[in-house]
Nucleic acid binder design. Structure first.
Lengths: 209, 209
DNA sequence: TAGATTGTTAATCGATTAACAATC
DNA sequence: TAGATTGTTAATCGATTAACAATC
């Protein structure tokens, strides 16, 4: 069964709210209470969970743990995936601390950089290698995913190189304007878009008060 | 006239593609070519631009510069806004280099941190102040926006404090589960959601090849 | 049992697409 | 003029909401 992408895109948000409810001590979440928390209608929640083929209990609600597991399964969060971070600058170092990487099944194996001053360092227990060692390292350590935290002018070249070494899954922070191969899994974090929306929200706030 | 939020949310993406076309030397973009580039239908583009009250030229297309200006106006990108960064760690330092901040009208005025080792430093030409100086600085320098790059446990407290000093516009990188005041403009960057989607895309790629 | 909430069908709403006359 | 593309109306599609019998 192929899951509708638009539904899948909603799952991380559901996951966050459900996790919170669990941590607050709830065992079940009803579409009513969850809907109020998330600002969506109970109907929509029931429709969505139905499409996940996940059943609740009449008069009670949905089992939170089961639902979290269901989402973990769909998103494949519990399958281990070896990942490297390209670029050991500030952003790369920030990501070394990210707790969600491990939570989503990504194990950071190493950092890579072109800067000889950074190569050889150990950051948060992770070695920084020269990008020249990428190919052998990727094959040796079975790397399947990479985070790009390099300057934008080096970004696409780096993706192409990694792709040629067999890495096809990328978390990307730069705007990409050219075409990439079809068989790539790329997730883009568009900080620029967020800043534009921040500007808009700031404006609306200013004009409504 | 109130602009539909769902339409506004599409604008940053339109903006990126239009900017690219301009830089490649085009003066006009037709709904056909733009649609092919963006993977959406020409009809949808014409409908959207119509709703922006922006007219094209029959047989030619839409004036790119004019359209960019229209979007800049709606998103209020050209109004100067004074911003501070809370947290001078790796993420805070990364953001000091961000070119889009200035582009969206945000001027970084200073950094703030609790760590005495960082206070007093100058990073990318920006002074790092102690958080104790927040109130006076915000009033003196007319700060209206802040980026939160602090550990998640300090995040909400920091927002509340800044809010009490009059700052109501925030770029936030942590998951917030509690309620915040109504009159806040907050834009959340959910790295955790992106990582979950990356995991899903990785899975789909694996199963389709 | 009474109360609460699900599961599911049907109705509504909004967004996307199709179509084509109008226009440069 | 012929060709291209817009502007706009109508048709379609999908997602959201409403409603309520079924169920625990």
């Amino acid at each position: 069964m192929m899951m509708d992408f638009k539904l899948v895109m909603k799952l991380p948000r559901y996951y966050r709210y459900l996790k919170e409810q669990l941590e607050l001590g709830s065992k079940y979440a009803s579409s009513g209470t969850l809907g109020k928390l998330m600002g969506i209608s109970p109907s929509q929640i029931r429709q969505d969970f139905n499409r996940l083929l996940f059943n609740g209990y009449h008069g009670v609600g949905y089992d939170i743990v089961g639902l979290l597991q269901k989402i973990e399964e769909i998103l494949d969060l519990k399958t281990p995936k070896n990942l490297i971070i390209i670029g050991a600058g500030n952003l790369g170092q920030t990501l070394c601390n990210n707790q969600y990487l491990a939570f989503c099944g990504f194990t950071i194996k190493a950092l890579f950089d072109v800067n000889p001053r950074l190569v050889g360092l150990v950051i948060k227990g992770l070695k920084v290698y020269d990008v020249g060692e990428l190919e052998s390292y990727i094959i040796r350590e079975n790397i399947t995913a990479a985070i790009l935290s390099v300057p934008s002018d080096a970004n696409v070249m780096m993706i192409r190189e990694l792709y040629s070494f067999g890495v096809k899954t990328f978390l990307n922070f730069n705007t990409i304007t050219c075409d990439l191969p079809e068989d790539i899994a790329i997730e883009n974090v568009h900080i620029d878009d967020h800043l534009m929306m921040l500007s808009y929200k700031n404006k609306i706030l200013k004009y409504t008060e």
